[in-house]
């Protein structure tokens, strides 16, 4: 129960941060993709089931927050959450290299997905310019932020798991 409530609170705050707080800081050049950070973090820490659920919610929020097609981001985030969930048991999640690599890889995939379906299909070919102007800045800022958010969520997850074990023992 605590887990569900805290997930909802985390996603809510992150969405407001991504759409309202970060865009105000115009000196940043780009807004970080916090929804993507949440999706791969939960997938790695908690496995494919929760990765899928968090991915669907984050992706649909991305869709609702923009005026575009509904389900476009949702589909991508869902698969990111589900597929990365397979890795969760084979990775040592305590190293800072995990969020860095994941943020870069997921961001590249995300941008490629948007470019393919929303730009290339309309005959816009300037991948190089898009890479320099949009992708690079977003990848860098998302990676930096991923380090902090991943660390925070890792700590919170450990605390929650310890709490859950204690309360399970009490009932047993």
């Amino acid at each position: 129960m605590i887990r569900v409530v805290s997930y909802i609170a985390i996603i809510f705050i992150s969405f407001v941060l991504q759409t309202s707080v970060f865009p105000m800081m115009t000196f940043l050049q780009s807004t970080p993709n916090i929804m993507l950070i949440l999706t791969f973090t939960f997938a790695i820490l908690r496995g494919r089931e929760e990765g899928l659920i968090v991915g669907v919610i984050c992706g649909l929020l991305m869709d609702f927050g923009s005026g575009g097609l509904i389900g476009f981001y949702g589909l991508f985030y869902m698969f990111v959450g589900y597929l990365l969930g397979f890795l969760s048991q084979h990775i040592n999640e305590d190293t800072p290299i995990v969020p860095i690599v994941l943020a870069v890889v997921c961001e590249m995939l995300f941008h490629f997905y948007v470019f393919m379906f929303r730009y290339l299909l309309r005959g816009r070919l300037g991948f190089g310019t898009y890479f320099n102007n949009i992708m690079l800045a977003e990848i860098i800022i998302t990676t930096v932020l991923a380090l902090f958010i991943y660390g925070l969520l890792l700590l919170g997850n450990d605390k929650l798991e310890a709490y859950e074990q204690r309360s399970a023992l009490k009932f047993a």
């Binding site: 923009s66 575009g68 929303r118």
Partner: peptide
């Protein structure tokens, strides 16, 4: 304006 688009690819605002 209370929010910008969720990704950097588009120029929508709320």
């Amino acid at each position: 304006i209370i929010a910008k688009d969720t990704s950097n690819w588009f120029s929508e605002f709320t």
